[in-house]
Design a protein around this nucleic acid. Structure first.
Length: 219
DNA sequence: ATGACGATTTACT
DNA sequence: GTAAATCGTCATA
């Protein structure tokens, strides 16, 4: 268990977002259950100038305070009255850059994750493996990530951390516009700040060939 | 005090 | 494809 150190997160979100692809999120529940998955999709939020960011225009409130904390802090927020989303805070103290983690390929504890997803479901239904962590709120539900982890130090605290890439590497990474930020307006809504593993079935968002073609190659 | 709005997901036609 | 679910947060008054 080698966890990524704070210095590794001390880069701007546009650098961290693609670097996180292929890294592993590890979550250990209070009962000791271990859950993990490889990050396959992220989005960068570039700070006060980014019209799609919660920190746009220098906004600093109780809700987004964690965005201004040290690199390697978790920013977990509640949205749409029912969903949690998980971000990795980066850059520097008082520079509110963050990377939204949108999807994982589960590697440990898949069946426990499935239990979390189906708990409280309105209707009994089958849940495909690829859908367990496909989408930012689905991922949080599977990993039991909620507001209690807002401000959590990913580099030092138990329960939630990130481990580096291992072995074969992340494969081909492509990018696209971020999802759900239309209201940010031009040019921010269209900037290519979403990064994902090409050809991974665990990635969220548009799934047709034509829509996937919107993604562009990157390093 | 009030109203509009989500970095989403699900169900339904 | 469209619409509902559901409520904390924030800007405005």
């Amino acid at each position: 268990m080698v966890r990524l150190p704070r210095s590794w997160f001390a880069v701007e979100a546009g650098v961290l977002a693609p670097a996180l692809i292929g890294c592993t999120i590890v979550r250990v529940l209070d009962d000791g259950t271990r859950l993990a998955g490889v990050i396959v999709e992220t989005e960068a939020y570039l700070g006060t100038g980014d019209r799609a960011s919660h920190a746009r225009g220098g906004r600093r409130t109780a809700r987004n305070e964690a965005m201004y904390a040290r690199p390697g802090t978790a920013y977990v927020y509640f949205t749409y009255g029912m969903h949690w989303c998980f971000n990795v805070v980066c850059a520097a103290v008082d520079v509110p850059h963050a990377v939204l983690v949108r999807a994982l390929r589960p590697t440990e504890g898949l069946e426990r994750m499935r239990v979390h997803r189906l708990a409280g479901a309105r209707s009994a239904r089958t849940l495909r493996d690829v859908d367990v962590c496909r989408g930012p709120a689905r991922m949080c539900q599977s990993l039991c990530i909620s507001g209690t982890l807002n401000g959590h130090d990913l580099t030092e605290r138990a329960g939630l951390w990130i481990e580096p890439r291992t072995g074969e590497g992340p494969g081909r990474i492509v990018r696209s516009a971020r999802i759900g930020v239309e209201s940010a307006g031009h040019p921010w809504s269209g900037r290519l700040l979403r990064y994902f593993q090409a050809d991974s079935p665990f990635v969220s968002g548009p799934r047709t060939a034509s829509q996937r073609a919107g993604g562009r190659h990157t390093g």
